[in-house]
């Protein structure tokens, strides 16, 4: 499973969404259950399954699947501060 598919799966898992409901355009504004607690759970899942550790200032920016993908891509390029 590539990172994108895994991220979609983890977002669904953290937010209790069916796979059909999770798509690349999804943002926190679209999902009432995507609150701070669910978000920090999602961050933990992403870190555990993708083997990364987000900087504290990045966490609040990961508010959409696009943002998560962009952050992961930046990290893959080594363009991050931790």
């Amino acid at each position: 499973m590539n990172d994108e598919a895994e991220i979609l799966r983890l977002v669904g898992l953290a937010l209790g969404l069916s796979p059909a409901a999770v798509h690349k355009g999804l943002t926190s504004e679209d999902v009432p259950a995507w609150d701070s607690l669910a978000h920090i759970t999602l961050v933990g899942l992403l870190e555990e399954h993708l083997g990364t550790r987000f900087h504290e200032n990045e966490i609040a920016e990961l508010v959409s699947i696009e943002a998560i993908l962009a952050t992961m891509a930046r990290r893959a390029r080594g363009d991050c501060d931790n």
Partner: peptide, 15 residues
């Protein structure tokens, strides 16, 4: 009821 914006508030204080 503000989604993840609570964490954005925390991020501001963290700065």
């Amino acid at each position: 009821g503000q989604g993840v914006h609570g964490l954005r508030l925390l991020a501001e204080v963290n700065r």
